[in-house]
Design a protein around this nucleic acid. Structure first.
Lengths: 114, 114
DNA sequence: TGCGTTACCTAGGACTCAGAGGTATATACC
DNA sequence: GGTATATACCTCTGAGTCCTAGGTAACGCA
């Protein structure tokens, strides 16, 4: 994905796509640009990862797509969260918190406690 | 890996192994048990993931192995961090902080700021 | 007309993790 | 002595995820 953190990431792409769409419908290109901007380019979204992920989310019924015109007057597919997508987002967000917390626990535990 | 967070994880297994070994040398089985214990079983380390990871870290020169006897009087391979492993741990730890921070930024940004 | 940006897409390979299976020994219990 | 449990190691294979590299096309501007 980026500079360095290509090591981690897994499932987090789906989560961030869903989160981005929770604010408003958006097209793939815009989602990628926004995530990069929001994280000061720490997270770079590759198109080869993005579009397959988007299609999979659509197949799973978590998002729906509709063709439209962007502010730049270009044809684009706008994605929107479905109710199932909202539920998935909530669940994934909770899982992430749980997971990240667990990793932090390991990373911050002092030697003595072992 | 576990209950739920099998979605995330990637690279984090290596990181947690290195971190565990930074306290003291340990054998595979012990590393797995300790990570599970430390995270209240949020993270479950599967053997099918653990041993290949251990072998890879050894091939990469980040850890070294030596046969010994455990406190249970059983034959076990004890792994120890190499200087390169310590450097990798520091770098990965920093990457993780950077990555987790970026994900949190996306997850916690309010709609209005987009 | 040509170029940069916006916007979409896929095929292929690399890599990681987990499930399932297998080996062997020490200790505890019957 | 025989059996069960826990400890401790290992690998094969499949499923899934991501990236590289390539391609299409339309808009706006010089």
């Amino acid at each position: 994905m980026a500079d360095a953190p290509t090591e981690f990431l897994k499932g987090t792409l789906d989560l961030m796509i869903l989160k981005t769409l929770s604010w408003a419908p958006a097209h793939g290109y815009g989602i990628a640009r926004w995530i990069e901007h929001c994280t000061d380019d720490v997270l770079e979204v590759e198109e080869g990862s993005l579009y397959p992920a988007l299609h999979k989310l659509e197949d799973d019924g978590l998002i729906t797509a509709e063709w439209g015109i962007t502010e730049h007057n270009r044809r684009a597919k706008f994605y929107r969260l479905t109710p199932a997508g909202k539920r998935r987002l909530a669940a994934s967000h909770a899982y992430w918190a749980r997971f990240a917390g667990a990793v932090s626990k390991v990373l911050e535990t002092a030697p003595a406690s072992a």
